[in-house]
Write a protein that binds this DNA or RNA. Structure first.
Lengths: 337, 337
DNA sequence: TTGTATGCGTTATCAC
DNA sequence: GTGATAACGCATACAA
């Protein structure tokens, strides 16, 4: 079923059908109706592939996610959801590309084959091959996250450095002197994952500014790791009274370890972090945290991308988001010892 | 950068370049090398859109998910992840379509515009317009879930009816006489959502078979709803000793309500259900549940779809999965009252 | 108001 | 072993 068939059955030329559909040229009411009748009868829909080839754009954006096998964090899911939603609102489809490993067929298909008009890149590292590849490809792209040279691209990002610093200052204000940072996994750290490094930098700086005793530790992205990580932390540093963290997924486990150590939050121990609002609220007790507006970030990324697509020559833009910390009751005065 | 440019620079015709790339016709080692050199130098990649138009297939599958705005459950995420992974293994890309509301542009674009070679449909209702639409479109599709007439399509599904029935029998074996079913939301029930209806059917049947007192209730898909739902349940039915549930997302809240009522699991109260393994294991305490193998189901759906695509005339197939219940310690003998 | 002709980038048929 | 050429289905510049 193609436009030629419709034309034949309506007794007009293909271009007339095309124009009747697009409205880019006046078509007499009479023929328009005749054409529409045939279209309705046969259930004709223009072939999107042919249209894309002709117009030179696919009306599709690529969303590069971490390999699905390694379960996505709540926040990453929030990004995916909001990107998909925002794209749908703009009548754009989303092509998913699970990437992140280096030798990557899916990524190369999407980017090299020009299957999309632009790309949104998640989980960016400080040095990221995919950014290099996208830059050379000339395809518009926006990062959720940024490399160590943010000027080279458009991006939206969470200001982990500032946020963790603020958490530490908040805890210091409450009298805590010995604070631990529970970061993301050692692997991500080693891979140069931006948020992990920036959180650490913010932590180090705040600890130095306030003359605190800071302990840094990495923790895998799951509840079980959270348990063992915090258990070890409490064993090794018995005088620890607070934790700052960006590791959403490990949080339930961290709670559990604190509880098992016989400590009550926030009376004996405080905890503050960075997490999606929904996640922070649903912890038990709800976590004092900087609420990352995942939906806004995704929408903003789509927005920036659409802008880049419509004007590829436009200068890069970056948007650093640092939401306020919502007090929810997991932080309190440092216990007297 | 297109194939003509490569041909010109290599001093051969476009067809030779095409054949050098596809290997579908012998090309002399010499010219092959010359062509490859030019390709490498210019970083040429065949345009996927043009290829799709010519070949009549897009090497893309559509994945129809519930609107992202309503957060997906852990299990749904598992399906998405496994579908994306399985598709990537088969060198297929995945186009996401957030659908489910009725007036649906994204769905229509993907299906009507033939942007994909086939579709995987999630969250199917007993009567589902999208199934009707897909059937009439002639596009191969596979459901994760099935309508009330399973013969009309290919699908993979979880046997909620049997699984919930088994949960009830297990609880009855332990001496429980008054058991509640915590189902999915009233809205899903009203919308004719298969799992909710089938779980209820399985519950009713098992309750009847064992001569138990059964209470059925719906519960929205979040922890908070789980709390209020179970709190009400315990208030209205003080002699309740067990719950069977398929509502993953509400489970943490259900635990909380039971705890707040001063009951200890499994000593005072038992709970069993259907959930993803990862989810069940990470509850605290880990839930006795039928472990839904989301990854297997997704992979199987992709498999079925690929089969449908390569042989559209092949008969429909259905696969009903009913994983065994893993005892994890949230069920115990009914308390003496 | 409508029709004809061309090209988007590719693959594949036919000819040499 | 290689080249010219015709589609794939659409949009649009050019004619009438």
């Amino acid at each position: 079923m193609n436009i030629g068939e419709i034309a034949k059955r309506s007794g007009v030329s293909r271009s007339t059908v095309s124009y009747a559909l697009s409205g880019k040229r006046p078509v007499s009411e009479n023929t328009r109706r005749r054409i529409q009748a045939v279209i309705d009868e046969l259930g004709y829909r223009p072939n999107a592939t042919a249209k894309a080839l002709k117009e030179g754009r696919t009306r599709t954006i690529g969303l590069v996610i971490p390999p699905a096998s390694q379960r996505l964090t709540e926040m990453q899911l929030g990004f995916v959801a909001s990107v998909v939603d925002a794209a749908a609102r703009a009548d754009l489809d989303v092509l998913l590309s699970p990437s992140g490993g280096e030798h990557d067929r899916s990524f190369e298909r999407v980017v090299g084959g020009r299957r999309v008009d632009g790309v949104i890149l998640m989980e960016i590292r400080l040095e990221d091959d995919r950014v290099t590849r996208l830059r050379q490809s000339g395809l518009p792209f926006v990062g959720i996250g940024r490399t160590s040279r943010p000027d080279e691209m458009s991006w939206v990002d969470i200001d982990y450095e500032t946020l963790i610093s603020q958490c530490v200052h908040h805890l210091a204000d409450l009298g805590h002197r010995r604070i631990a940072l529970v970061n993301r996994s050692t692997e991500l750290m080693a891979a140069g994952y931006g948020p992990a490094h920036r959180a650490q930098a913010g932590f180090d700086q705040a600890v130095a500014e306030r003359g605190l005793e800071g302990v840094r530790t990495c923790c895998a992205d799951d509840a079980r790791a959270g348990v063992s990580c915090v258990a070890r932390l409490l064993a090794d540093h018995p005088d620890l009274t607070a934790i700052a963290t960006i590791n959403e997924t490990a949080m339930p486990g961290m709670y559990r370890a604190i509880e098992r150590a016989g400590l009550t939050v926030p009376r004996d121990f405080s905890i503050a972090g960075v997490a999606g609002r929904h996640w922070a609220e649903n912890l038990h007790p709800p976590l004092t945290a900087a609420d990352v507006p995942a939906d806004e970030l995704g929408a903003q990324a789509v927005d920036l991308l659409i802008r880049q697509i419509s004007d590829p020559a436009a200068p890069h833009r970056g948007a650093l988001v640092s939401p306020p910390i919502s007090l929810r009751g997991t932080t309190g005065p440092a216990p007297a010892r």
